[in-house]
Amino acid sequence: MNSNYPIMLRLEGKLVVVVGGGKVAERKISGLLASGARVVVVSPETTDELQRLSSAGKIEWVQRPFLQGDLKGAFMIFAATNNKVLNKLVKDSAEPHQLVTVADDPDGSNFHLPSSFHRGRLSIAVATGGASPSLARKIRKQLEQEFDETYEDYLEFLFMKRKWIITEIADAALKSKLLTAIVSDEFLHSHDREGDFQRLYEGMI
Score class of each variant (00 low, 15 high):
81 T>R: 05
82 N>K: 09
82 N>I: 02
83 N>K: 12
84 K>P: 06
84 K>W: 02
84 K>Y: 06
85 V>Q: 12
89 L>F: 02
89 L>I: 09
90 V>E: 01
91 K>Q: 11
91 K>F: 03
91 K>L: 09
91 K>N: 03
92 D>H: 11
92 D>T: 06
94 A>I: 09
95 E>D: 10
96 P>E: 05
99 L>C: 05
99 L>Y: 10
99 L>T: 06
100 V>R: 01
101 T>S: 13
103 A>G: 00
103 A>M: 00
103 A>D: 00
104 D>S: 01
105 D>F: 04
108 G>Q: 00
109 S>A: 03
110 N>L: 01
110 N>M: 02
111 F>S: 02
111 F>Q: 00
111 F>L: 01
116 S>R: 04
116 S>G: 02
118 H>Y: 13
118 H>E: 14
119 R>N: 08
119 R>G: 03
121 R>M: 09
121 R>Q: 09
122 L>V: 04
122 L>K: 07
122 L>M: 09
123 S>I: 13
124 I>E: 00
124 I>G: 07
125 A>W: 01
127 A>D: 14
127 A>I: 01
128 T>A: 03
128 T>W: 05
130 G>H: 01
131 A>W: 03
133 P>S: 01
134 S>P: 01
135 L>Y: 02
137 R>M: 10
137 R>T: 07
137 R>W: 02
138 K>M: 09
138 K>D: 10
139 I>T: 06
140 R>P: 01
142 Q>A: 10
144 E>R: 04
145 Q>A: 14
145 Q>C: 08
145 Q>Y: 08
146 E>V: 10
147 F>A: 07
147 F>M: 08
150 T>C: 06
150 T>W: 05
151 Y>L: 11
153 D>Q: 14
153 D>M: 05
155 L>T: 13
155 L>W: 11
156 E>V: 08
158 L>C: 13
158 L>W: 09
159 F>L: 10
160 M>K: 14
160 M>D: 15
161 K>G: 05
161 K>M: 14
163 K>V: 08
163 K>G: 03
164 W>I: 06
164 W>S: 14
164 W>D: 15
165 I>H: 04
165 I>F: 09
165 I>Y: 08
166 I>G: 02
167 T>D: 12
169 I>E: 07
170 A>I: 11
170 A>R: 13
171 D>G: 07
172 A>M: 10
173 A>N: 11
174 L>A: 13
175 K>P: 06
181 A>F: 11
182 I>W: 05
182 I>E: 04
182 I>C: 05
183 V>R: 14
183 V>D: 15
183 V>I: 12
184 S>C: 11
184 S>P: 12
185 D>K: 15
185 D>Q: 15
186 E>Q: 15
186 E>N: 13
188 L>H: 11
188 L>A: 10
188 L>P: 10
189 H>Q: 15
192 D>P: 13
195 G>I: 10
196 D>C: 07
197 F>W: 10
198 Q>W: 09
198 Q>V: 06
199 R>G: 02
201 Y>Q: 06
203 G>P: 11
203 G>C: 06
204 M>I: 08
